[in-house]
């Protein structure tokens, strides 16, 4: 009676020990980066509801229109590669954010800026279909936003 139970316990224990080792292995490279900001925010990147994403990112900071430029094509022939340039002159930008409303996961990227970085970011993104693209720049007490509609003629998530 006792033996199977004991073996079971042993196996269970060694199993969990393995899980701990695997977890530690996964964490190590991230820590080696010595980041000053929190780890990759999985919950926000997996969030499908836009208002929740915005609340998670900016809390109760007021969102105002204008204050930054988003250079995006009016029409993208290939949704797999849509160039985006984000530019802002607002003083002390802390965070730049790009959101594509109709992508399966709207949040595309969060850029954390140190005081030595200018409010500038150039990147190419994928777009599943025609959608508004929203750019945000967050400062200490408010958030500036601008929206551009980009028409996609060939699907992008396949890229």
């Amino acid at each position: 009676m006792n033996l199977p139970r004991r073996t079971f316990l042993k196996q269970a224990l060694s199993g969990s020990a393995l899980a701990v080792v695997a977890g530690a292995g996964l964490l190590r490279p991230g820590q080696a980066l010595a980041r000053t900001w929190p780890v990759w925010p999985q919950a926000i990147f997996h969030q499908k509801k836009m208002p929740v994403v915005l609340h998670e990112l900016f809390g109760h900071r007021p969102i105002v229109h204008g204050g930054l430029h988003l250079h995006a094509p009016l029409e993208a022939e290939n949704g797999a590669v849509v160039p985006m340039v984000l530019e802002t002159k607002v003083p002390h930008p802390e965070k730049l954010v790009l959101i594509v409303d109709k992508n399966p996961f709207p949040l595309a990227t969060i850029v954390h800026l140190s005081p030595d970085a200018l409010g500038f970011f150039n990147v190419r993104i994928k777009m599943g279909k025609t959608s508004p693209v929203r750019a945000y720049v967050a400062t200490k007490d408010r958030v500036h936003t601008v929206t551009r509609k980009v028409k996609v003629t060939i699907g992008g998530c396949g890229g």
């Binding site: 140190s114 030595d116 990147v123």
Partner: peptide, 27 residues
């Protein structure tokens, strides 16, 4: 810059294949 983080980018799956990014730094 000199081992001090200047820009940290968190990316989702919406960034294109072979990411090409540009940032601007002062000082």
């Amino acid at each position: 810059v000199n081992h001090k983080p200047a820009v940290i980018t968190d990316m989702g799956i919406a960034i294109s294949k072979d990411p090409l990014i540009a940032v601007k730094l002062t000082h």
